Amino acid sequence: MCGNNMSVPLLTDAVTVSGKEKETAAVIFLHGLGDTGHGWVDTLTEIQLPHVKFICPHAPAIPVTVNMKAMMPAWFDLMGIDPESPEDENGIKLAAENIKAIIEHEVKNGIPPHRIVLGGFSQGGALSLYTALTCQHQLAGVVALSCWLPLHKSFPSALSGHKNVPILQCHGEIDMMIPLQFGAMTAKKLESLVSPQMLTFKTFPRLPHSSCPQEMAAVKEFIEKYLPRI
């Protein structure tokens, strides 16, 4: 099941940008480490479709090991930014359950899973990938920006069986935080988990660990394709 008794954030812990007309689809977008849902609202509003609502949850503040245990908004603890770094397995799984609970909430309110795109940037993109691949529902798609696949060694056994979920993975070519090589390794791993034709991996020259208008244009095109007006 997607939901269980773990602590689940209320939807008041999110910024929601409503559609301009009847909402028949939703994009749940997860911010990066140290940010909040507010950090992405303006960028997402620029690419919003009238029938799609955007939900930008806020991560709770927790001590983050890689930042000398400083308290900051984080979906789970980070011990290091390296494919071989130890990972916060319990924290990642708990965070995924919390995001699945938001998906369930939308489903109960009439937006079916195949009309929900899950996305995120950096740590949020990592969590969106892990959540979509382990969720009982097949979602409309995943937008994974400047990120990696958490607990990558637990796949393919952790996979919920949705091999046809479309994934748009984007990465800046001069990203010093999550190097492009990690993005490429992630794409290679994802190719072995989902049908290869469902994965699009785009890289952007001169883009550091952030976003750019060309990348957001690609995100908009992806949303238009997989969340068309009904």
Rank of each mutant, 00 (worst) to 15 (best):
H162Q: 00
A144R: 03
A59M: 04
H162S: 07
I102C: 03
L127I: 01
G161H: 06
V165D: 01
P86W: 07
P113K: 10
H105D: 14
V64S: 09
H152F: 12
L139V: 07
A74S: 11
S160N: 08
M176D: 15
L133T: 06
G124S: 05
V143D: 02
V117I: 12
A140D: 05
M72H: 09
H162W: 00
Q138S: 03
S154V: 06
V143L: 11
G141A: 08
A95G: 13
H152V: 11
F182Q: 12
G124T: 01
P166S: 08
P63A: 05
V165T: 03
A74L: 08
H114V: 02
S85Q: 11
V165H: 02
M71H: 13
L159I: 11
E106Q: 13
H137L: 08
L118I: 04
Q138H: 08
G141Q: 06
P179D: 12
H162P: 11
K163W: 07
N164C: 12
P113Q: 04
Q138T: 03
V107G: 01
C170M: 12
S157E: 14
L94N: 15
P112G: 07
E84P: 09
G119P: 02
D88W: 09
L129C: 07
P83T: 09
L78S: 13
I111Y: 05
V142D: 00
L139N: 06
V117H: 03
A101L: 14
T131F: 10
I62H: 03
L94H: 15
K93N: 15
P83A: 11
V66L: 15
P86N: 10
P83Q: 13
L78E: 00
I102K: 03
A95M: 07
N90Q: 15
K153N: 13
D82V: 13
A132N: 01
G161D: 11
A74P: 05
E84M: 13
M79Y: 13
Q123P: 09
H162L: 06
N67F: 12
G80K: 08
A140L: 11
K153H: 14
T65C: 11
D88L: 00
N109Q: 15
I92H: 02
C135K: 04
S85V: 04
